[in-house]
Structures are given as C-alpha cells and as structure tokens.
Simulated scan of single mutants.
Amino acid sequence: MSGSPPPSPVPTRKIARQATSAAAHVSPLPEDDDPLLAFAPYLHKQPRRNSITPDLQRRFVAVLAASGIVKQAARSIGRSIEALYKLRARPGAEGFAAAWDAALRHGTERLEDCALERALKGGFDDDPVSGWGGRGNGLLIYLLNLRGAFRVDERDLRPGHPVYEKIRREVLDEQRERERGTS
C-alpha cells in the first residue's frame, strides 16, 4: 500500500494555498503492516476478471482511511460504489466490512483534526483567496454531526439505550432460532 500513493485530484488552482482545505487532500496511505489492513478479505469462489480481489479490497480500505471518502476510494481501485457495497453485504465479507468501518472512523478522526485546526487558526471566515466567506465551516459542522451520530460510547451502552436494545433483540432472536433448531 505504502509504495504507490493514491491518485491525487488534479489541482485546479494556480497556487497551492488556494485549495479549499487540508481535508481536500489525501493523507499518506497506511503502511503494509498497519493493523487496519490485517483483515480477512472476501474470497470469491469463482473469481472473474472484474472481481474485487483481496489486494483491491486492501487498497480500497487504505485509500478510504487516507481520504475518508468512499467514492474516492472506489475510484482508486477502478470499481463502482455499488459493487463495493454489494461485496460488503455478502456473507463471508465481515472482515472487509469491519475494515471499511475502521477506515471510515480513521477518516472521520482526520476530518475532526482538520476542523480543530480550522477553529484554532480562524477557519475560512472572510478568506478573500478561497472565496468561501465562512460557508465551509457550516458544512464541516454538518458533516461532523452526521458522522458523529453513528458513534456509540461503550460507557453509554446500558439497558434502554437504542443500540443496546437492538443488540439485545438480535441476540435473543438468535437464541430462539437455535432453541427451535434443537427441539
């Protein structure tokens, strides 16, 4: 992974400081020995020419961790978002799905770092070069809230919490299924 960087978007600005933010740039890819890439990939029973191979799955996860953007990671391996979501949902692709989620968390943490840096440096408010005039901060806050909504703090998981109750229902349903199968 670390040997070849992901394709970078072609800059459309004359000088680098005119780019919209650090979040628009891809951070370095994880090293080959990064635990994020140590997942069990989905293995196709009868691989075809356009199958998403284990190497492509790892490349996708690496670029996703570096960019935080699913579309960009899909483009980097030459596959559609739809094909990747289908692969993610297949039985046997749990390792890939877990690595995908971990890569998104990594991307979200990067986004939060960029937001903190903006807050400390003053952000884009009244920036005549970018022309954003403060609009970028509102969008950043929206994205952080949206992505943060899927986080669950383990300390909050107790009876009554929606995630706790969902997991409880799933476990009880599985237990009932097993009891029906043995009786």
Rank of each mutant, 00 (worst) to 15 (best):
D113S: 13
G95E: 01
R90V: 01
S130D: 08
R49L: 13
L56I: 01
Y85P: 00
P91D: 13
W100G: 00
A103P: 02
R59G: 00
P9W: 09
L43R: 13
N50Q: 10
I141M: 11
Y142Q: 10
W100L: 05
D127L: 07
G131S: 08
D127Q: 07
T12L: 15
A23I: 07
S8L: 12
A66V: 02
I52N: 02
L120P: 03
W132Q: 12
P128I: 04
I52W: 03
P54C: 06
R79I: 01
A19H: 11
L84T: 00
I141S: 09
T12V: 12
S4F: 09
L140P: 00
E112G: 07
K86Q: 14
E117P: 02
D33Y: 09
G95T: 02
K86R: 14
R49M: 11
L56G: 00
A99M: 06
L111Q: 12
Q46F: 12
G3T: 11
I141Y: 08
L120D: 10
V10R: 10
F96N: 01
R17M: 14
L87E: 01
D101S: 10
P5C: 04
Q57K: 05
Q18S: 15
Y85V: 03
I77P: 00
S27R: 15
G68N: 03
R75P: 00
S80T: 15
E112M: 10
L111D: 06
A119C: 10
L139E: 09
T20A: 12
D34S: 11
V63I: 07
L139F: 13
F60W: 05
E31I: 09
L64H: 03
L84H: 01
V63Y: 04
P54R: 04
